[in-house]
Write a protein that binds this DNA or RNA. Structure first.
Ligand SMILES: [Mn+2]
Ligand SMILES: [Mn+2]
Ligand SMILES: [Mn+2]
Ligand SMILES: [Mn+2]
Lengths: 219, 219
DNA sequence: TATATAATTTAGATATAACTAAAAATATGT
DNA sequence: ACATATTTTTAGTTATATCTAAATTATATA
């Protein structure tokens, strides 16, 4: 498989949130930052290879083989991200671009050895689950901070938006995975939250709160 | 730079043994396992980019920029090989193919961090010198076992042929970098050597002996 | 349901990196 | 120095991955 084919498969997988959902040509084009006509060409190719179901004008979906392929690329991407952070002291906002390249390296043995070196991590630096050799993975709690009731406590377990800008914002405010936070108040006007974290009080806009995955805890 | 361009630059560098020697189109084609006409095309492109000096029918040589580029790719290749052996327990016959892929990953920071993780190694698993950030490197002793006088002792410091077949042959006979060996006898008939190594006596054909780099030692 | 709008595909073009076959230049041997 | 052999280049073709513009199909609206 070419890098390009792999990137398309990954895009379709993420757009369908990991299921075999039907995805539109336009949405793939948008995500890939390419033109719909280029997507059509590639869909024909991927369809011929048995990786996607595709009928013209009907959108596209991954076949079971396509899902398996996507999971393997994502496994590689996320393991490399863990490597970069754990072994090379990269920060979580620096790793994605490099992992975009490393995910295409072909060697099953390399990935298994890397997995072992990293002690078989289950989540990447952004809290995203790392699929195992056979595609199995632990579902991460997918509740957003913006969705949980006032007064409740939660642990930060992931980011929905993992852009460098957002990650650096979190760093600046000392918000990291594993942090415990309690929602003190919700502002009616703009849905911003006042939270208690790390002996501090912090104001988070709705947009921030709806990009943080949390796991609720009882006190 | 594309992977293809990088591979051509590396090929020209190796054919010229690291200097700015003039290389023939045919020799590049042979090394790249491609056709001379394809080489001509690429030489025009690399010339336009200022990486090689090229005049039709006159052969090709690297510019200083070309040499610098080659050294950077080789640095990456060899550091990744060390990583694979030291950190992921690969054997020296398994690493080259994977490094051929990894050498094209673009990130200066990644390579510098890797260098640090590996403790700034000066040689790769095959005894080849690893260029530093600025292209400088330690010249390895380039004497071949076949060239040193009978009765002398030497330490194995590298392999000229680093094909998997040869490396596995060396493993099978417990010949590794750092081993001390003494030439006991040279057979007139076929130039094979009888050597003393590791409390053993071993017979090495001329072909073997002319693919092992050694550093002579005084007793 | 007819029409307008949006989504998607097709057709045709460009760029890269290969190839084959033929032409041209260089090198070699007598 | 000439004829031949070898090397190298050119011209034209193929495959991949893009693009733009035009045509087609689907969807939404009146
Ligand atoms: Mn990522
Ligand atoms: Mn990618
Ligand atoms: Mn190598
Ligand atoms: Mn390479």
């Amino acid at each position: 498989m070419t890098h390009s084919e792999e990137n398309y498969i990954k895009a379709i997988f993420h757009l369908g949130m990991g299921s075999e959902d039907v995805i539109s040509t336009n949405s793939v084009a948008e995500r890939m930052e390419t033109k719909p006509s280029s997507v059509t060409d590639m869909m024909k190719k991927l369809s011929a290879k048995g990786l996607v179901h595709y009928k013209k004008y009907q959108g596209v979906s991954l076949t079971p083989l396509g899902v398996k392929t996507a999971l393997s690329i994502i496994r590689k991407h996320r393991l490399w991200e863990v490597f970069l952070v754990e072994k090379l002291d990269f920060t979580w906002d620096e790793v994605h671009e490099i992992a975009e390249q490393l995910e295409h390296i072909e060697s099953e043995k390399l990935i298994d050895k890397l997995d072992e070196l990293l002690n078989f991590p289950k989540f990447d630096p952004h809290g995203d689950p790392i699929p195992g050799k056979n595609g199995e993975f632990i579902e991460r709690d997918n509740q957003l901070l913006s969705q949980i009731p006032i007064g409740s406590s939660a642990i930060c377990v992931g980011v929905k938006d993992s852009s460098a800008v957002f990650l650096r914002f979190l760093d600046k405010n000392n918000i990291a995975l594993g942090n415990k936070m309690k929602i003190v108040e919700k502002e009616e006007f703009d849905n911003s939250l006042r939270i208690h974290i790390d002996q501090r009080e912090l104001n988070l806009s709705q947009q921030i709160a709806s990009n943080l995955y949390v796991k609720m805890i009882k006190l």
